[in-house]
């Protein structure tokens, strides 16, 4: 039996998007989020997480490519019990830009 295997999705042609997540701050939240992206073979280019001033919450910033699966990905992220909100920003958002100098 011969089956067509889909080519791995080329992501670098796509625009980048910054996702801003507000989450409950406890151990395990990062693993829920990273696991969700990993098991759907959805690349996360950049990730940043810090507690908010209300320390029961954290804010997570994710830099991802805007391929056609992003809508579904966001819906899945929104289903996670510890995720309180998801906002989308364009790649021009400064959070990752200002970190650039630590990496280049």
């Amino acid at each position: 039996m011969i089956e067509q295997v889909a080519e791995p999705l080329q992501q670098h042609g796509f625009a980048k998007v910054v996702l801003e997540l507000e989450v409950n701050n406890h151990p395990g939240v990062m693993s829920h989020i990273c696991n969700l992206f990993a098991r759907r073979a959805f690349n996360v280019e950049g990730i940043l997480c810090m507690p908010m001033s209300d320390t029961s919450r954290s804010r997570i910033w994710l830099l991802v490519f805007e391929d056609q699966r992003l809508e579904q990905m966001v819906l899945q992220v929104e289903k996670l019990v510890d995720v309180r909100s998801v906002r989308r920003h364009g790649a021009e958002h400064e959070v990752f830009e200002r970190l650039e100098r630590f990496f280049h």
Binding site: S31, H32, N35, L36, R39, L80, V81, D82
Partner: peptide
């Protein structure tokens, strides 16, 4: 088991 069941539960707790 917490880590292992992340992808197969609706939610899990340690």
């Amino acid at each position: 088991i917490y880590g292992m069941t992340v992808p197969i539960t609706k939610h899990n707790f340690l």
